[in-house]
Simulated assay, not measured.
Amino acid sequence: MSLKTGPNTARRTVLGAIASSPLWLQSAWAASQSMKISHQFPAGSLMAGDFRDRLCRMFAADVEKRTRGSLKFSIYANSSLMAPNAQFGALRKGGLDLALVPLSYAANEAPEANIGLMPGLVTSYSQGYGWKNAEIGKELSRILGEQGLVIVSWIWQAGGVASRGNPIVAPEDVRGMKVRGGSREMDLILQEAGGTVVSMPSNEIHAAMKSGALDAAFTSSTSLMSFRLQEVSRALTSPRGGGYWFMLEPLLMSKTKFDRLSKDQQAAVMAVGADLEKFALRMAQADDAAVARVYARSGARVAEMDAGALAKWRDMARNTAWRDFSSRSENCARLLALAEKSMAFL
């Protein structure tokens, strides 16, 4: 029995072949899609709230506009999609599209990530943001790319200390306290200073300090306010007068998902991400000033770092955290050397 092939059948065959081709599938996938952005910070709006949540919402709105709706986004704030420490694995495997998260949270999977919270290495916003186009930034981007991550926005924040007792200014103030540092390298310094390290993401600090499981926490000015740590603190060490604790907390995208976007979509994502770095810097600096006022109104004692204390912390960091980090791998040693090289041009 013979089958006749009419024009409609032939047309369907051709269309079916085109639709099943890898190039067509990639083009169709990139043409219109919905993406998820995860973070651990309190939800707000475009105009109010934690600036990191606002930045995610601004990014989503602007990229959708620039791509004429071919890219849409859903924001999952306050760890509503997944736990903070699970985000990196999900990004690397392509199970999550984007996340705004402290880079040091990736240290278990990528030890090089702790360069983003290396005490005493970055001491100003201008130095931190200078990394992006310097050798250190290019090398970090290369390493993270191999780990399946793309830095969309470079976001730096200065850190302070909330304490249930006296303010922590010099290393000797840590002795005998249960302290959260935020990274392996911070923990090494705090242990060297005589503290007991307690590890947790920033959204768990309030409960730990309230219960007494934690005496003090090093975290960003924004988190010091967003997580209402003034409610459980009697003292604040403000970063206004200088600080040795600067954290890289970027907006990251899964490289698997980024590579599947069209060239125009990729360009929109990266352009908007770069534009929002100015907003992030402005908001971080504003929060550095605001945090002291918030804690003072709550009745907390507000202290600031002085040059002598900063020198003590840096010397301790160089002999403990820096040495430990550079010994972990060739990549870590190279990153630290490049970061120190960038300091020489300040």
Rank of each mutant, 00 (worst) to 15 (best):
269 V>S: 11
155 I>C: 13
206 H>C: 01
147 Q>R: 06
10 A>P: 04
267 A>W: 10
15 L>M: 06
38 S>A: 12
98 L>T: 13
35 M>T: 03
258 F>Y: 14
24 W>A: 15
203 N>K: 07
222 T>Q: 10
145 G>K: 12
117 L>Y: 12
36 K>P: 01
316 M>T: 04
270 M>I: 10
149 L>G: 14
115 I>H: 01
253 M>G: 05
243 G>H: 12
188 L>E: 07
256 T>V: 11
232 V>W: 09
311 A>S: 06
292 A>K: 02
173 D>R: 00
305 M>S: 14
288 D>C: 03
316 M>D: 04
198 V>K: 00
307 A>V: 08
274 A>L: 12
19 A>G: 13
328 R>T: 15
48 A>W: 10
77 A>N: 13
111 P>M: 06
246 F>H: 06
16 G>N: 11
48 A>Y: 10
138 K>T: 10
118 M>P: 00
76 Y>E: 08
188 L>S: 04
156 W>G: 08
132 K>S: 15
267 A>T: 11
250 P>S: 11
120 G>W: 08
137 G>L: 06
240 R>K: 02
114 N>P: 02
338 L>F: 08
270 M>R: 13
52 R>W: 12
75 I>S: 00
304 E>F: 09
305 M>P: 07
143 I>H: 14
133 N>W: 06
313 W>A: 07
205 I>F: 01
13 T>G: 09
325 F>L: 07
224 L>V: 02
156 W>Y: 15
346 L>V: 00
282 R>D: 15
338 L>H: 01
109 E>M: 12
109 E>F: 11
177 M>E: 04
33 Q>A: 08
58 M>E: 11
185 E>Y: 09
264 D>Y: 07
153 S>I: 07
333 A>F: 10
200 M>I: 03
21 S>D: 14
250 P>A: 01
246 F>M: 02
222 T>S: 12
100 L>Y: 12
224 L>H: 04
154 W>P: 03
225 M>A: 02
343 M>E: 15
111 P>Q: 02
180 R>A: 10
20 S>A: 14
38 S>H: 06
127 Q>H: 14
313 W>Y: 02
243 G>A: 10
157 Q>T: 04
310 L>F: 08
247 M>I: 03
34 S>W: 01
197 V>D: 11
309 A>W: 01
171 P>Q: 04
247 M>V: 01
82 M>V: 04
67 T>K: 07
301 R>A: 09
226 S>W: 07
143 I>R: 15
330 E>F: 01
47 M>L: 05
252 L>E: 15
202 S>D: 14
172 E>F: 10
149 L>Y: 14
153 S>V: 11
251 L>C: 01
234 R>V: 13
293 R>G: 14
113 A>S: 15
96 L>R: 00
252 L>P: 15
253 M>A: 03
315 D>M: 03
345 F>K: 07
102 P>V: 08
134 A>W: 05
34 S>A: 11
54 R>N: 06
336 L>F: 13
71 L>H: 00
214 L>Y: 07
79 S>W: 08
21 S>W: 06
302 V>E: 07
241 G>D: 09
96 L>H: 09
318 R>M: 15
335 L>S: 12
212 G>W: 13
191 Q>C: 05
14 V>G: 05
